[in-house]
């Protein structure tokens, strides 16, 4: 059963890994991905991103993505945490952790989870520029391609 959270607060990678592994001796690999806010995403400095979501559906879509990962790989647990609200450069945005008996399942599931999370969970980023103004981030073809490499339709 995956842990799914959407929250304004930051997360603690070590604490989330410990929550998945403490007391277990069957875990052989832990895959982790942390996404952070990068400045100059389009060559223009940003003061912050704001992240919007669809309360209810977002959590449901994240749970469906996690369930798909659990169908495809032998996972002993996984955690998806996505922050919302105002996030400044350097701050964490998203955390994916997948644990398994063996490294390949943990690594592959982690890559799958972040690829699908970017294109199949209802979140939208807006850039707040350092010199004023703001703009919604356009969906990127490269993200769609990354998600499509795992199959499973559009």
């Amino acid at each position: 059963m995956a842990t799914i959270r959407v929250q304004p607060e930051d997360f603690d990678l070590s604490a989330e890994v410990a929550a998945l592994t403490s007391g277990r001796t069957d875990v052989g690999g832990i895959g982790c991905f942390t996404g952070t806010v990068r400045d100059n995403p389009g060559g223009r400095s940003i003061a912050a991103l704001t992240l919007e979501h669809y309360p209810g559906m977002t959590e449901r879509a994240m749970a469906q993505i996690a369930a798909e990962a659990e169908r495809r790989w032998s996972l002993l647990g996984c955690t998806l945490i996505h922050r919302v609200g105002r996030l400044e450069p350097g701050e964490n945005i998203v955390l994916v952790v997948a644990v398994s008996a063996h490294r390949q399942a943990a690594l592959d599931a982690t890559a799958f989870l972040i690829d699908w999370l970017k294109t199949r969970a209802p979140f939208w980023k807006k850039e707040i520029f350092a010199d004023g103004g703001e703009a919604w981030v356009a969906a990127r073809e490269s993200d769609a391609d990354a998600a499509a490499r795992w199959g499973g339709g559009a």
Binding site: H53, M57, A61, V94, K118, R120, A121
Partner: peptide, 29 residues
């Protein structure tokens, strides 16, 4: 589009009482 919080296509049925959401392509992660 999503109907009752499930992703929907043009041919997805909609009826009275449904929750129908419209939004741009998603840009999370």
């Amino acid at each position: 589009c999503a109907v009752n919080q499930d992703f929907a296509q043009a041919q997805t049925p909609v009826g009275a009482g449904d929750e129908v959401a419209f939004f741009p392509p998603m840009t999370g992660g």
